[in-house]
Design a protein around this nucleic acid. Structure first.
Lengths: 113, 113
DNA sequence: ACTTGATATGTCGATCCTCTAGGTGTAATA
DNA sequence: TATTACACCTAGAGGATCGACATATCAAGT
């Protein structure tokens, strides 16, 4: 995605939350996470691999995701992620925060003179 | 503000839009912009000076804001900003984009298994 | 007279995140 | 056989925000 593409800008800080949310739906591997995000958002978000994998490692390092090598349905090796208890709490906090931010942004955008 | 405070994440990439929106309400100087944003968002957003002034210069460099030194009501010198025609279009584009992003994010957050 | 706090602008360096662009390897399909 | 999809990864560049610092004026309190 072009660095001037506005879609890049506002994924900033949101990607972690979206990943945690997708993983919360059930064990899933990285490649499939990016597909799910793209699919559910109706192709609006396209998570680059250069964003995806560093984010997954970040979330694992922070103890929010647990990783385990398993086989996919098609018999390939892949790293499956699940949410830790800490991750679940983090997700809840981030969702609350996102809702507050969205509310505050809309307050400002709807302000008339 | 605590670095762990979620408000620190002023949702990167949103600040420019909020500034453009506030300036669109009428000529205003930098210091007052940060106050307006804080006030309208009911203290949720607190724009740091280290974010504010670089942002204003950025927006001016891109031709979205026009600057002019004037006196405040209290007789102090301050740099007043107004929206250029390009800035107005940019604001409209960013608002449309923000709405799309918010929609896409909520699509994902509301997804149940 | 002095000090504090609000007003008002600005820079610098650190930090963090995303992107592009590369890389590895396997399996299915044309 | 070549290409595409799957599945993982990293390095370096660029951009944005922040905390901390620096400057200066002015009002109000002590």
């Amino acid at each position: 995605m072009n660095p001037m593409d506005p879609r890049t800008e506002l994924l900033k800080g949101t990607l972690d939350m979206l990943i945690l949310k997708i993983v919360d739906l059930g064990p899933i591997h990285g490649y499939a996470i990016s597909q799910r995000i793209q699919q559910i958002s109706k192709d609006f978000f396209q998570v680059q691999q250069g964003s995806l994998y560093p984010a997954l490692h970040r979330l694992e390092d922070r103890g929010w995701l647990l990783a385990e090598w398993r086989q996919t349905e098609t018999g390939r090796e892949a790293k499956f992620y699940t949410l830790s208890r800490k991750g679940k709490k983090q997700l809840e906090a981030e969702v609350r925060n996102w809702e507050s931010i969205a509310e505050a942004v809309f307050l400002i955008l709807r302000t008339a003179d």
